[in-house]
Design a protein around this nucleic acid. Structure first.
Length: 189
DNA sequence: TGCCCGATTAACT
DNA sequence: GTTAATCGGGCAA
């Protein structure tokens, strides 16, 4: 059984942590899969929610690393982030897609679709499939209901520009598992 | 208080 | 390819 990722794993630059999360396994109440797509957001990055300072919504980003930052997107969806860097840097990694491996039946029930590729291929879909919402804001990532398992072998990581943002669009801070069918959008070769 | 807009998704043509 | 759904944050007034 692979090692559980501890708090210390997240006390580093988002640009170091994000690619290392590719291939790790994320479980929430035992439901989840292999992380195949993430994006890094640093406080000095105009696209980050923490860029304009601390607010009620982003407060957990300004606290210690290793906790879940969850926010409402477009008034409809929930999105999950892992807070990184030493406390106060206010940076996080957005979890964008999983390859489902655990609890497929629960995911299909919550999502209302059968196709594996539509269960967790997108940040909003992933949260719906795992049952993650604002109730879980600020929870520790190294304790239940979260379980994050280190990847066993090195993963081939694809890199590209981030999706769905209008600021700082040129930074190549999106990371994916090379050739995975479960990413939300393909990476350019 | 009012207004604009977004780290999205699904259902359209 | 386009667009509606839906609501809290952030800022102007």
């Amino acid at each position: 059984m692979p090692a559980l990722l501890r708090r210390k794993f997240f006390v580093r630059s988002v640009h170091e942590v994000a690619p290392e999360l590719i291939g790790a396994t994320l479980l929430f109440n035992g439901v989840g899969g292999v992380i195949v797509e993430v994006e890094a957001y640093h406080q000095t990055d105009a696209a980050a929610h923490s860029f304009n300072g601390r607010t009620a919504r982003n407060a957990v980003m300004f606290g210690p690393p290793g906790y879940a930052y969850i926010y409402r997107s477009y008034g409809i969806h929930w999105c999950l982030n892992f807070v990184c860097e030493p406390e106060g840097i206010a940076s996080a990694v957005l979890i964008r897609a999983l390859a489902p491996t655990h609890g497929l039946a629960a995911m299909r029930r919550r999502r209302g679709v059968a196709d594996e590729r539509l269960l967790c291929s997108g940040p909003g879909r992933l949260c719906q499939a795992l049952g993650i919402s604002d109730k879980h804001y600020g929870l520790a990532l190294d304790q239940p209901p979260f379980q994050i398992l280190a990847r066993g072998i090195a993963a081939e990581v694809a890199i590209g520009p981030r999706i769905g943002i209008t600021k700082a669009i040129d930074h190549p801070w999106r990371y994916g598992l090379k050739d995975s069918r479960f990413v939300s959008k393909p990476f350019r070769a």
